[in-house]
Design a protein around this nucleic acid. Structure first.
Lengths: 243, 243
DNA sequence: CGCAGATTTGAAAATCGTCAAAAACCGTGG
DNA sequence: CCACGGTTTTTGACGATTTTCAAATCTGCG
């Protein structure tokens, strides 16, 4: 049992998934940092429930450029973009050592796996990714380099917020080349912007840590709004009535 | 009844949705071109099943710039990015006169609506959007203006392919400012690239129609691959067994 | 025909990328 | 504790691409 499961029919989102993994007798897989979980062009095999560590999705272009698409955290589900597709559209790589559960795609698409509880959870996770991709698209499509970097820092803080929220400090798990690949810039541009922001007193840097000195100013600079999720639904998702 | 429904338990994707709409007693709504279906910042109310016409999602920035995020076609479902969110992240506007079914979000998240068949369909539709957003992100983040325009034309042809595939002719439903807003460019840049492509014999233009004269050359120019979906699943999605 | 919106064109300006070298950082091993 | 090698970050000069701005042209339609 991976996650706490409630005793009555009132299920939390998390326990719904945990029961699913139990039912599938899914064994967790461990990966070292930098391992490929799936590669662009393969056939979709699994969804991946990230139990611990970080995984990111990316695409390589023919000229060697890379676009990083999404950073998956513990609790996230990778591979939802490939449901119903003939081929996988992006590669998945572990950014740190991590533990992952593979959920065979064929079960997702065709079987008894999809209780209403599981379905809602998957839909919400898919929505989360979609929502973040949309915001990224706005940033990359319509913001200057400086604005994009600020956006990325703020988004990182929100994303890592739940886990280790320590006094406006963000521990960024990427180097500057990777940061550039996240927001369509070069490492040189990222470096320049970070130095500028530091010189202007918006942030302080120490190693991979960024301390937001004036978060509200940064938010105002790009009119940033955090994504807010609804409190997880806690109704009787297991209801068996009338289909 | 909107869509043909099969008589036995073997359900097509489409008929699954059609039955859902029946069950919800959903009445279609008609919109004129240019109407808001939902606006950024509202609370999520509905999913929108597009029965006919076009709808697109976009975000406005504080400085008046716009990023268009996705073009929904008949059969698509808009609003999937807002499942489980506190606030809507993008506005929806009709690009042509259209007919739309609203599916109340509260039913999606909490009720008996989610049969396995409906769930799979929603997940696949969500995956489609996610996949397209990822490709857009790669284009905007890592391609030059010319490559982005070529990418957009090819993607449009694929997207409009199913319906009216007439001899490599794409009828683009956007003006050049909107095309720019789709791929993070200005109308001026779009104009220049289109003129160049025309002069170089890659395309012919007549009004809003673009004829691809050498599609394979264009594909090679940007190493384009079409998205391919699996043949729609036709198993017994209505199976009532063992959850 | 005339109008309004859309597209094209050109020149100037700004942004960002490229390239290359220097500096800083980090873990390892003496 | 220090030296070393490899990676990452910083810096500066230069160039290319794209935007901005403005004017001219084109198009569709009443």
């Amino acid at each position: 049992m991976l996650l706490p499961s409630s005793v009555n029919t009132t299920m939390t989102q998390q326990s719904v998934l945990s029961e699913l993994l139990d039912r599938l007798k899914s064994e967790p897989c461990s990966y070292l940092s930098g391992c490929d979980l799936q590669h662009e062009g393969d056939r979709p095999q699994n969804l991946y429930y990230i139990q611990s560590g970080w995984v990111y999705a990316y695409v390589m272009l023919a000229d060697g450029q890379r676009q990083i698409l999404y950073l998956y955290q513990p609790g996230d589900i990778a591979g939802l973009s490939d449901v119903g597709m003939d081929r996988i559209s992006c590669s998945l790589v572990s950014l740190s050592d991590c533990v992952v559960h593979a959920i065979p795609m064929k079960h997702v698409v065709s079987s008894q796996v999809l209780t209403p509880g599981v379905s809602v959870h998957l839909l919400q996770k898919s929505a989360e990714v979609q929502s973040c991709l949309m915001r990224t698209l706005v940033a990359i499509g319509r913001m200057t380099a400086r604005q994009r970097v600020v956006w990325l820092i703020l988004m990182f803080q929100d994303k890592l917020h739940q886990r280790h929220m320590v006094a406006n400090i963000v521990d960024v798990p990427f180097n500057q080349s990777e940061l550039g690949d996240l927001i369509g810039l070069t490492n040189v541009s990222v470096s320049k912007v970070l130095c500028d922001l530091s010189n202007e007193g918006f942030i302080e840097r120490k190693g991979s840590q960024i301390r937001l000195r004036r978060r509200s100013d940064l938010e105002e600079m790009i009119h940033y709004h955090a994504i807010r999720r609804l409190a997880p639904f806690r109704g009787k998702l297991e209801s068996t009535s009338t289909y």
